[in-house]
Design a protein around this nucleic acid. Structure first.
Lengths: 152, 152
DNA sequence: GGGCGATAGATGCAAATGCATCTAAATCGG
DNA sequence: CCGATTTAGATGCATTTGCATCTATCGCCC
């Protein structure tokens, strides 16, 4: 596991592989839980991201950075959420091309409700697997990785 | 970041959130790279998993545990790979319901070729972000998490 | 051995996704 | 200020995905 002769390239690849597999394993469990009957993961993810936005309104292209979806797919996903009354859209005031999105009250309510279940599910998977100290370290490392990768 | 008063549930949720976002950020970069023109990520993932299988043959349902896809989607994905001559299928000898899958020579070749590019892309993202020590720790933690989550 | 619920995989079908493309608006260079 | 390039978002269309369901086989219990 910590062979000193391992090449840097190989170490990086194995690290990513392990991160990816862990994500798949956890996500598989979360998806099958009851929290995602009403809403697909990507849809919840959009509501969640919007719920954490201070001003409420978020540009659609910024949303796109958080979600693993093509631009066109996100466009349609937001359109669906709008039809279901969970978000609303309006043209960006400072950019005639842009669209702003925010949660409606119903959307915020649904996000909170699903979020609560979701958080419980997560805790029941993560907490028994890693100590609090390990979780903090994992949080730190993944945050560092994400920041470094995004900032370029 | 390390407030001692944080609840265990909240810490677990934030840890997962961070892991997930890091995965999204890295995957977004990898997908847009040249390595995935010939093959979708899920398709490559299947070839990769098969390439690491000692006996060569792998049961389709075991494949399914590694990939974030429904059973039916995997079934069709394997079907497509078979049509492209990258894998072959045969009935499992010890279980009349089962199907065994393995790489063809062409499949192995393509996996290796894409794998090489892929590994370079990964290294160029991960290596500048985390020290070797941090990568080893991240590898350890994600491995521990995956093992704990899968083993139940 | 015979019935019976569970499991592996395939398939019909509707929904979601991505690619290519289109329109409109912003930005850049002169 | 004007044309050229870039960017944001929408849309047509083919592909992929998931859900529900179906068939066949397995394992279990009597």
């Amino acid at each position: 596991m910590s062979s000193k002769t391992e090449s840097p390239v190989r170490l990086a690849a194995e690290t990513w592989e392990s991160l990816f597999r862990a994500q798949v394993a956890v996500m598989r469990r979360l998806q099958s839980g009851p929290a995602f009957k009403a809403l697909a993961v990507n849809e919840y993810d959009v509501l969640f991201t919007l719920s954490g936005c201070p001003s409420g309104w978020l540009r659609q292209n910024e949303l796109n950075d958080h979600v693993l979806l093509s631009q066109s797919s996100l466009s349609r996903l937001v359109e669906r959420l709008e039809k279901r009354g969970l978000v609303e859209r309006r043209p960006a005031p400072d950019d005639g091309r842009g669209v702003l999105v925010r949660l409606t009250d119903a959307g915020r309510e649904l996000q909170k409700q699903i979020g609560r279940e979701h958080v419980r599910d997560i805790a029941s998977l993560v907490a028994p697997a890693l100590t609090a100290e390990e979780q903090r370290e994992l949080l730190r490392l993944t945050d560092k990785l994400r920041t470094a990768v995004q900032g370029r």
